[in-house]
Amino acid sequence: MSGGSLSVPLRPFEAVGRGVTGLLESLGRFGTFFAEALATMVTPPFKFRAFIDRVHYIGFRSLLIIILTGAFTGMVLGLQIFFTLSRFGSEAFLGPAVALSLIRELGPVLSALMVTGRAGSALTAEIGIMRITEQIDALTVMALSPQRYLVIPSILAGVVTFPLMTALFDVVGIFGGYLVGVELLGLSRGTYFGEMQTLVRMNDIMTGFWKSIAFGVVVTWVCTYKGFHVGHGAEGVARATTQAVVLSSVLILVWDYFMGSVLP
């Protein structure tokens, strides 16, 4: 029904209705896109080379940023937590405090945010450019599934690389905390690592692991979806890239809360 057919007082309701139906339609497309990817994933052939390319693109090329942010996050944690604990005379717990913060929360979340900024945005831009230059249509009319070549390798690469990068972030962060706590502030090495071994449990590590896998799926799903459904021209690609980064980041934080409250 056109807007002109409603009386003026009813038009705000029509606008709200249109917004809600538009949102539901988008959510439906978003879900259908993932369902189609899953359905394609379980049918051969598997594009192993495309998968390896994506592992390199998402994982290997993000290593530097992960090491840098991991190191400085660990150092900041070491510094702040040391001064907080020293007020209670509990500096001995610096190691486990740094490790638990990193392993349960900051490692998965910050590494996912960093990879979103570096690789997720590039993924959206690359697929978006392929869309507007009809390269995706070219795949389709060759009777080849664009999902198989572009989406599935990216999602699987996310599942594989995010936990690895999270693990790297955690390890580098723990050594960053060590550098500040032990080398700069004088805590003993044995205390830092000894208490960590006592207090960090397998559950904590698995919580971070499951989170990182979930973030790997969320980020690659959102970024490939936005690339596939890009608007027109360079402006459309730019908008899709921004939306992909913002939506991925928000979903990482929201999903982190839900998983944090569900997982032990």
Partner: peptide, 19 residues
């Protein structure tokens, strides 16, 4: 639909070459 497309060749306006 793919079975029909197997019989097709398409030249797009901009070429649509994989860059």
């Amino acid at each position: 639909l793919d079975a029909v497309r197997e019989r097709y060749g398409v030249v797009f306006q901009g070429g649509a070459l994989f860059d």
